[in-house]
Structure formats: C-alpha cells, structure tokens
C-alpha cells in the first residue's frame, strides 16, 4: 500500500449485537454475539476478517447490511463515508454503493433466471451482458436457473451481481468455500482488481491462507470481537510481529509455521468471561485482564490486549 492518508469508507465503532432468545419456557435471555467490535475499511483496501467457523463473523456482515433478524438488538455505530449508516441511509446505498457477495448460490432466487437476478432492480441487461463477458460467463448462462450453475459460475455470477453499479464498498461473506484453489484464487484476483480500482472490500473468511494472498490488512476475530487488526505483512512474517497473544497462537498453529495447536476452545456467547475474552486461554493472563480492555493503536495496527507490545 502506498503511504498516504486514506479515507475511511466503512467505520464500525463499539458494535454490540445481541439476540433475544427464549430459554426454558418463557424466560427471555439476551445472548450477546458481537462485543464492542471496532473495525475500519479504507478506500481501495481489502480488509479480511478471519476467525473460526461459527464464531459470529456473518453477524458482522449482516449488521452492516441491515439484515439482522427482528430479535436482534444493536448498539454502537456503523459509518459509511463518515456518515452514520441509519436504515434510511442504508436504503439509499444498498445495491448501488454498498454491495454484498454472499456465501453460496442459496442466496439466489431458485426460480428466477440468473441473468435477471444479476440485473436486479437497478441495473440493465446491457450491463449484465458486459459483466458476463468480463467474467467469462457464456451468454447462455443468463437463462440458467441457480441450480444449474457450477461452483465457479455461481461465484462469478455473485460477483457480477455485486459490481453492476460499481459499488464503493463490497461486503463479501465467505466468498470462497467449496471452490478449488484455482477458482478461489481466481475469485480473489477479481477482488484485488476491484480494490485496485478504488473499491473497498470487507472480506469475511475462515481461510487465512486466502486472506494472506489479497488482503491489505487482516482483522482477527475471536469469540465475537476483533482482537487485532494488522497489516498482512506482519502476519506473513510469523507470530513475532503480531500484537495479540491469540493472533500469535493462531499463526503459530498454521501448518506452514510451527503447527502447534492452542489448547482450549473459544468461549460460548452465553458464557463469556469478564474482561478479556481470551484470558482463560492466555499464558500471560493476570488480574488486570479481568477489567474492561479497550482497543488501542499499536505499531501500524490495533490491538485489544494490555500486554501487547
């Protein structure tokens, strides 16, 4: 990345999302799944949010896009280009300036031809054809139904649908599962190209290797919050350049590094420790870790740990 101050396209501050659930009969219980999460994506930048499957990463995408179910409550704020993203603002931008690339072909209407779905409510047939050509989709594909698509075709169709209006921000939720390495790399190359042309991309994935390939910065997601955000270079250099003990352990656990697994499991959303969420598994944990830990800037990155240096 070049050295100049870039504008924040997406900025998330202290986002808390909880779901109201019924427990044993009629007792309501609030389950907090995102805990004061902060994150920003700059112009033309790819930020990868990485974390294990089922840790609530998709909830983050849904919160930004306003897709949370009725039983969800949200506090904190989400800003798009410096403006608070209220439901009204969101309506203005969704599908035009803010686009979503979902996980799978299940997000397409099973009974509508894909060409028509790519066109959506804002774009045109011409634009769709142009994009199909760009992404090497045959013309016949526009008359196919989602169930007839191969994994690679589906991916390119979802990307086409996202970029019809040349969005400024793309939220991609697990854009590569079920693809072989070649197709996944292909998808990521498309992302890189979009970013190089000025689109900001928030990519949510559990595949750290793929994040290494294209992301400018990587945000480490743990138990419903982001514990560290650092330039990809720091991750590629192994554990020593990283800030948070979890990120260090996480990188060390990779096969290409020391392949040392971290003991224990992520805490369940209904049963969280006070203070630092990683404390129960952290070798450096001390009493001070039980207090409120804020995100702080540290060497080109951000971390949520009092020990980090």
């Amino acid at each position: 990345m070049e050295e100049k101050v870039l504008r924040n396209v997406l900025e998330i501050n202290d986002l808390v999302v909880s779901f109201e659930m019924y427990q044993k009969g009629f007792r309501k219980k609030k389950l907090e799944v995102l805990h004061s999460l902060s994150l920003d994506v700059k112009e033309g930048e790819i930020v990868a949010v990485v974390g294990s499957s089922g840790s609530g990463k998709s909830v983050l995408a849904h919160a930004v896009l306003g897709l949370l179910p009725k039983n969800a409550t949200m506090t904190g704020n989400i800003k798009y280009q410096g403006e608070l993203l209220t439901p009204k603002e969101r309506k203005k931008y969704l599908g035009r300036e803010i686009a979503f690339i979902p996980q799978s072909v299940d997000y397409l209407d099973p009974l509508m031809k894909v060409g028509k779905q790519v066109v959506g409510v804002y774009s045109s047939k011409e634009r769709q054809r142009q994009l199909f050509e760009k992404y090497q989709l045959k013309k016949e594909v526009e008359d196919m139904y989602p169930f007839q698509l191969s994994g690679g075709m589906a991916r390119r169709i979802l990307i086409s649908a996202a970029v019809t209006e040349e969005p400024k921000l793309i939220i991609a939720d697990e854009p590569t599962p079920g693809l072989n390495v070649e197709l996944a790399m292909d998808t990521l190359r498309h992302f890189r190209k979009l970013a190089d042309n000025g689109t900001s991309i928030l990519m949510i994935t559990h595949d750290i290797d793929l994040a290494f390939q294209v992301a400018d910065r990587i945000a480490v997601f743990y138990a419903g919050t982001i514990v560290e955000i650092s330039p990809t270079g720091d991750f590629l250099a192994g554990g020593k350049n990283l800030r948070h003990p979890y990120s260090k352990a996480f990188i060390t656990a990779l096969p290409q590094n020391e392949f040392q697994p971290l003991k224990g499991t992520q805490p369940y959303a209904g049963d969280l420790p006070e203070g630092c969420l990683f404390a129960p598994r952290c070798p450096k944990a001390e009493i001070a870790c039980n207090g409120k830990i804020a995100m702080r800037d540290l060497r080109e990155g951000k971390v949520r740990c009092i020990h980090a240096t």
Binding site: L67, L94, A99, L108, V121
Partner: peptide
C-alpha cells in the same frame, strides 16, 4: 426466511419489489 430474500434486501430491493419479484 430464506437466504435469497436477505440477499434481495441487501441488493436494495424494497418490500414490494421483494414480494413481486421473489
């Protein structure tokens, strides 16, 4: 409650458009 309705919302379709189209 299907995912494709969420997707339609994410693509900026209004409630009426979602009902009519999907």
């Amino acid at each position: 409650n299907q995912d494709f309705i969420l997707y339609a919302k994410a693509r900026g379709e209004s409630l009426w458009q979602i009902v009519r189209r999907h």
